[in-house]
Write a protein that binds this DNA or RNA. Structure first.
Lengths: 309, 309
DNA sequence: TGCCGTTATTTGCTTCCGTCAACTAAACTA
DNA sequence: TAGTTTAGTTGACGGAAGCAAATAACGGCA
């Protein structure tokens, strides 16, 4: 049973955004096509092979109405019909060159409108606005809003807020996924503190994966005695797992270790992080030690993995 | 010049949300009023004293069209006109009892629709969806979306992620507002570490102000030798300043200090935090020391404020 | 005070968006 | 092969929504 307050928020947003969209779609009134016609054009543009029924379902409009729209667009030379070989009733719909040019023009107008809207808002907020919209689209289950590597940026310069974010990410995720208590976050804080105090830019490095300005993944290499290196704080937000981010981060760390001529990499984990363990093994890490311990409110085995380079 | 990618995100969201709103507003098609008529009713409902022009501007519709809508609604007994004494041309518009009943009915239908939509989405996301929508409304400058104390919750239990968030907030804000470099964030981390290690629930406490699940403000009291207390990490996100949050946090800290019978409270700051200093003074703190120092990439004066209880 | 430009609202006219229902034709089903 | 379902077309219609001209009240000004 959703909270009444949540519903109120959504309703308020809907009312607000109805007005907003009305403003942003005014440019369409200047064109010779109605909003629905333009929406149909968009639909044809973005779906490579779609039929009238496909569009009808996407736009939720009357079949007769759509039929007329398509006739008009076809007559105007914007849309081409390609009869389906396997079904004489339907046709694939595509845009003609002219239709594509129209889309570009409408896109430009729409962009101008949005640019104009943004110009009245603080520039600092632009990125946040886009991020919130993406987030909403994803949360509401919009098709094509899935998370991909393209949105993710990996960097290794440490900026203000990064350290705290890394600590918070560990605290949150390990609490949610393994039920570790606050002592774990505290432990992470201590290890990061240690890292920062002894950091040597040539032998230590930390990579941050961010998406829409938010921290979504981390890994670091910390130098140790005897040309050894420790791999630390390897962590990825659950939504961003399975898209190759783990591999990308690990690759960065490995490349760095090879370039710095480390002799051996080791890492410490527990038997509970089985998914991570699988990944370590894939990169050639081998479990060398496993000692029982009672940590952060759990009885577990501390494990040490090693990889000779 | 806004980034092209931001505009693309916004356009994509607009297209998506146009469809979404279409779905959510279908219940209106069952009623005997059009979407615009219902929007007018809403506008009358929520604005206590508005005239036709007010509504026209809010909905961005033609004056003639609105005139007809109002006549229809008045004839149906939904809307009442109260002639303005000072302007014979206009009238205040209000809803009749019947109009209000209609709004309740429409509201219920709309709620059901949203509830239905939410039921197809993971329950964990509901809160996040509402938060994103609020955020967007605020960012896009929706009227009535301003930040108020009502949305802010103050708590003093430390949850996973809190510690990291506090550190990150300090790092980000002090970098942005005073240009402090990463050493400041590091320093905050050390002090929090010290706090956590020596924390005694009876004599130490930390308050977090959150809004929509995000950390927006902090303050803490740490016990010291001789029944003294140190006030630490007093910080509020700039958007949340000026709404009384500083006062609320400070009040919590003061109440705690009095209840615990501390003899004296002191705090350390610099001459650069002039806004905070003004607040401290208002609460009776007095500057006792001011020593030049070179910290976090700046030449400044470290200051010590004290308050005898 | 009366004249004039401005503003708020109304009315007449028109367009065309979007729905309903009946229809055609092709595809499936038994 | 007849009956049913599905994809798309067409005719008829209501009403949403804009434009322009009209009306009426206001405000300023000589």
């Amino acid at each position: 049973m959703p909270d009444q307050e949540i519903i109120a928020d959504i309703r308020q947003f809907n009312r607000f955004y109805t007005a907003q969209l009305g403003l942003l779609q005014q440019h369409i009134f200047d064109s010779e096509y109605s909003l629905t016609e333009v929406r149909a054009l968009y639909e044809i543009h973005f779906n490579k092979q779609t039929t009238a029924t496909g569009i009808r379902e996407a736009l939720h409009i009357d079949a007769g109405y759509l039929s007329r729209i398509l006739r008009k667009l076809e007559k105007a030379g914007m849309v081409l019909k390609h009869p389906l070989p396997e079904d004489g009733r339907s046709s694939y719909l595509t845009l003609s060159d002219r239709g594509r040019r129209l889309m570009v023009k409408m896109g430009t107008l729409s962009d101008d409108q949005i640019r104009d809207m943004l110009s009245h808002l603080p520039p600092n907020d632009h990125q946040t606005i886009a991020a919130s919209m993406r987030e909403l689209r994803r949360l509401l289950g919009a098709p094509g809003s899935g998370i991909t590597m393209e949105q993710v940026e990996i960097r290794s310069d440490i900026r203000p807020g990064d350290i705290g974010d890394i600590i918070a990410l560990h605290g949150q995720l390990y609490a949610k996924e393994y039920g570790y208590d606050h002592r774990f976050e505290h432990y992470v804080m201590e290890t990061i503190h240690d890292y920062m105090v002894h950091a040597d830019p040539r032998r230590d490095r930390l990579w941050l994966a961010t998406s829409l300005g938010r921290l979504v993944g981390v890994v670091a290499i910390q130098h140790r005695e005897g040309r050894q290196a420790q791999l630390r704080w390897f962590l990825i937000r659950p939504e961003y797992r399975g898209i190759g981010l783990g591999k990308a981060l690990m690759q960065q760390a490995m490349d760095f270790c090879r370039a710095q001529r480390f002799r051996k990499i080791y890492l410490l984990t527990t038997d509970q992080q089985s998914a991570a363990a699988a990944l370590y093994k894939k990169w050639g890490f081998v479990k060398k030690e496993s000692t029982p311990a009672s940590l952060w409110g759990h009885d577990l085995y501390e494990e040490r993995y090693e990889l000779e380079l």
